[in-house]
């Protein structure tokens, strides 16, 4: 069922050392040539119907890109959750508003001397207001207020950065008479870690569902291709084509679909990552982090690609198994 490369007759073959060798070599040559032709033929058939081929490829690409993209998001969240350094464990102490600046200054120096405090930073009320104006864009609104609504904040870094150590410091600082409220900044990280664990499972289930989708899409596409070439299959079987011979072009079709789908999926995920990189960096800076959005690594891209191609081939194999056997030349004479 292959298209034949009939361009020109090759020149006469040189006489081989032995007949057996020559025939083995010629048969191997034929085998590989036939595979090459089948691959090219399958590709040409896809190109012959560009619209439907593109549509199928797009469906495959999206099915592959969704779990890949989610995985990528997850990976970045994990870096965020795991990459919190000791400096990022901080207790924020919001001070009562009626404190004088000198009291605040004294408290600040007291804290610096404490055994359980590694380091502390003082954000005065006016500094807090200036920062807020700068980031919020509400400067006009604040201008209208008679009084600065923001409290002074002491940002304290515990010496013991374990969860329990940080909590103990939070409680101790919360008990200070000058403190209005305290906040431990590790809580969002714990929540994030729990969320990441949950999402890992969700992405796994999602990936499985979409892998099945890829199989079904390819299987159905190949089934239609087989239906469309039913007469041809009958003729090939009548003139002595083996099942492997009949199967081959369809397997290559599946392989190409997997190839194109995986390639497009990777391109989608990569361009999305590039698109989000700048806003993600700006967001991270707001949190005082130097986090950079990571794309897929080379090996992760390789895995996605391999999985896509394998799914394409597997889908084709399943379709071929189910639909080719039914086509036998019963009514042809």
């Amino acid at each position: 069922m292959g298209s034949l490369n009939t361009a020109a007759a090759q020149g006469g073959r040189g006489q081989g050392a032995s007949v057996l060798q020559a025939s083995l070599r010629s048969r191997a040559e034929h085998y590989f040539r036939h595979h090459r032709e089948m691959a090219r033929d399958a590709l040409r058939r896809l190109a012959d119907t560009p619209f439907s081929s593109l549509l199928t490829t797009l469906v495959l690409a999206i099915s592959l890109a969704l779990p890949t993209g989610l995985f990528s998001v997850l990976k970045n969240l994990q870096t965020v959750a795991a990459g919190w350094t000791d400096e990022q464990v901080k207790v924020s102490v919001f001070l009562k508003k009626d404190l004088k600046d000198s009291d605040i200054e004294r408290l600040y120096h007291q804290l610096l001397k404490r055994e359980d405090v590694m380091q502390a930073e003082l954000i005065s009320r006016s500094q807090a207001l200036a920062e807020f104006k700068k980031w919020s864009g509400f400067s006009n609104v604040l201008e209208g207020l008679d009084e600065n609504p923001l409290p002074a904040v002491l940002v304290v870094q515990p010496r013991d950065v374990s969860v329990n150590g940080a909590k103990a410091l939070r409680d101790a600082l919360g008990a200070l008479p000058q403190s209005d409220s305290v906040q431990l900044d590790t809580e969002w990280i714990q929540r994030l870690q729990a969320m990441v664990a949950l999402m890992q499972r969700l992405v796994g289930a999602f990936a499985l569902a979409l892998a099945v989708t890829v199989l079904l899409v390819i299987g159905n596409t190949i089934r239609l291709a087989i239906e469309g070439r039913r007469d041809e299959i009958v003729v090939v079987k009548l003139v002595g084509g083996t099942n492997a011979f009949v199967r081959r072009p369809f397997l290559y079709t599946g392989l190409w679909y997997g190839f194109a789908g995986a390639f497009l999926a990777l391109a989608m995920v990569e361009s999305l990552t590039a698109w989000l990189r700048t806003p993600a960096r700006e967001l991270a800076q707001l949190y005082g982090s130097d986090f950079v959005l990571q794309g897929l690594s080379l090996s992760e891209g390789g895995i996605v690609f391999t999985v896509g191609v394998m799914l394409g081939l597997l889908g084709a194999m399943l379709a071929v198994r189910q639909h080719l056997r039914a086509i036998e030349p019963h009514g042809s004479i």
């Binding site: 298209s3 034949l4 009939t6 090759q10 006469g12 085998y31 090939v236 011979f245």
Partner: peptide, 22 residues
């Protein structure tokens, strides 16, 4: 397929060389 390819089909299936097929 062309007339040539139709006639060549059994030879392609049986694995003849391009030279023999022609």
């Amino acid at each position: 397929r062309s007339v040539f390819d139709n006639v060549a089909l059994p030879l392609v299936i049986a694995g003849y060389s391009t030279y023999d097929i022609n």
